[in-house]
Amino acid sequence: MKKILICISLILIYFACAEPEKPLIPLGNVDYVERTENGQTLIDTVYHTVPDFSFLNQDGKTITQADFENKVYVSDFFFTHCPTICPTVKAQMLRIYNTYKGDDRFLMVSHTIDPVRDSVAVLKKYATKLQIETDKWYLLTGNKAELYETAHQHFVPAAEDKDAPGGFTHGGHIVLVDTKKRVRTYCDGTDPKDVDRLIKDIKRLMNEEFK
């Protein structure tokens, strides 16, 4: 009897300590909206979504939310002259790219936060050297205010800062967005272990979204 009890408690301790996979709950403010249907009052849960945008990709084509229809995508913010974390984040984005580039349900997008220098031509050159396909990984440029607003809508800090190396300060986050434009999780793009976790989360999200 005593042995059984010890066994059971060991099993319990194992499950208590094993880290469960966190559910991918949409991030941001949640609204509860009342609506009436057939005389009944229902409450809808409304999550934060990334609003529509209009930018140019490395081929000069206009990209909007319509291009992300029925896709799960990861998003990051960078600039080509970035002397700090950007190359590390790009190296990690490349790992994600190489894992999922064959999957039609998945897209990648990197927004510049320095549109004055990062023209379509500059991004085209960058993409060529990064050896990525345009229809799998968009490098976007456009209106500066709209780019910064898009960063903030992804919960990524981005700002001009004369004192920061390169003239901009921004987060190295890689953000995962679902087919309903909800931000589901993010990782620190400078931490390969956290990126490993995101790579698994992308698969989990796709399994959940495309049942």
Partner: peptide
């Protein structure tokens, strides 16, 4: 140096 040239010294494709 590592931000650009990376931990494994392989840097970044044809960029760095």
């Amino acid at each position: 140096c590592q931000n650009c040239h990376q931990k494994d010294g392989n840097a970044l494709m044809a960029l760095i």
